[in-house]
């Protein structure tokens, strides 16, 4: 599946059967964010509760650590509230 945005320039390029050929990954929803969650890895117990409840699927597991993908994080702060060790802090997004 194509990763970039698909734009049909001519009508005849549009497939006859309306079907999806690309993924929404081109849509970097990180631009929606006005607060930024930051994980403090010193206190993180790797319970992966933040990963489990992320509605934007932007927390990925890398080397058994939760890592936030800021390209897609919308800043809903569900992870901040759900973290049992309270080791995710919110900072205001700079311009």
């Amino acid at each position: 599946m194509a990763k970039g945005k698909i734009i049909y320039k001519r009508a005849k390029d549009i497939p006859l059967n309306a079907m999806s050929v690309g993924s929404m990954l081109f849509n970097k929803t990180g631009a929606w964010r006005n607060v930024k969650p930051i994980i403090d890895y010193d206190n993180c117990i790797k319970c992966m509760i933040c990963w489990k409840f992320c509605p934007d699927i932007c927390i990925v597991i890398e080397d058994e650590n939760p890592v936030i993908d800021y390209d897609y994080c919308k800043g809903c702060a569900v992870c901040v509230v759900e973290c049992p060790k309270k080791c995710i802090s919110l900072v205001e997004e700079g311009r």
């Binding site: 993924s23 081109f26 849509n27 929803t29 509605p55 934007d56 993908d69």
Partner: peptide, 14 residues
């Protein structure tokens, strides 16, 4: 996948 158009904190996506 990421990049979907749900609002922040959407339960439906989960």
């Amino acid at each position: 996948g990421s990049g979907h158009l749900a609002c922040q904190g959407c339960g439906a996506t989960l």
